[in-house]
């Protein structure tokens, strides 16, 4: 199935696009101007490895140890914003409460397997960053399930994981990306053999602590201010 469903709606009106050209030229996009890296990789749903998504990460560093990324389904101008990923060093990951750790995934195999790459970046520069990324952990949330053909962002957020070993990624998906970006995962894998993962090895609580994770929507009472229970909301 196409992972780029057509969003329903009228073409952007000329007046709207002119207006937005104006706002874009007047406004400063502070946090957006801080995004300076495009990483391509694959995610799968934390409850279903058979649903795999090509994920284009556009990342900015908050400091040396924390990156925040917008995830799109493509690197093109009409890309759909499908999720978010936070990437932290092993040191910061270790500080997370234990009940939080399962929502984070390891990056060592994605790097060593050659699957994580920076489109358009020369090997030696890419390698410098890959050595760092291999030791990090990521927390990825997708809001838009383009892989099942949703033409709008429907339903609740999904926790996503990354590849952790051989045999998980579908060949068709891999080959499609290799062809479009003129990369070879096998060749990269060979070059990255000596890159090392987290100092302490993969944390056993990461990657769902070995289980799948499923998000569930719960209805809760709206918490009223200072313990009063309003009877009427409108």
């Amino acid at each position: 199935m196409s992972q780029h469903p057509e969003v329903p709606g009228d073409p952007t009106a000329t007046t709207t696009s002119l207006l937005e050209k104006a706002t874009a030229s007047i406004q400063r996009f502070g946090p957006i101007s801080h995004i300076h890296q495009h990483l391509c990789a694959f995610h799968f749903y934390s409850h279903d490895m058979t649903r795999q998504v090509e994920a284009h990460h556009f990342c900015g560093h908050l400091n040396e140890e924390v990156r925040q990324c917008l995830i799109y389904n493509s690197p093109e101008p009409d890309a759909r914003l499908i999720g978010i990923e936070y990437i932290v060093t092993e040191t910061l990951f270790d500080m997370l409460p234990d009940e939080e750790k399962p929502m984070w995934h390891s990056h060592d195999y994605e790097v060593k397997g050659g699957y994580l790459f920076m489109p358009g970046i020369p090997g030696p520069v890419e390698r410098q960053d890959m050595e760092k990324v291999a030791k990090t952990y990521g927390k990825t949330i997708h809001f838009w399930q383009v892989d099942r053909g949703d033409n709008l962002p429907l339903g609740i957020p999904q926790i996503m994981f990354a590849l952790t070993r051989e045999g998980q990624l579908y060949d068709e998906l891999a080959q499609d990306v290799e062809r479009r970006y003129k990369v070879s995962f096998a060749a990269e894998k060979e070059k990255r053999k000596d890159i090392e993962g987290p100092e302490m090895g993969r944390h056993p609580l990461a990657n769902g602590a070995g289980k799948g994770l499923q998000t569930v929507l719960k209805e809760v009472d709206v918490k009223p201010p200072s313990g009063t229970t309003p009877r009427v909301f409108v």
């Binding site: 934390s46 409850h47 279903d48 929502m103 957020p157 769902g208 994770l213 499923q214």
Partner: peptide
């Protein structure tokens, strides 16, 4: 949103 462990 809650998160529940399930069989993947």
């Amino acid at each position: 949103i809650d998160v529940e462990p399930v069989d993947m």
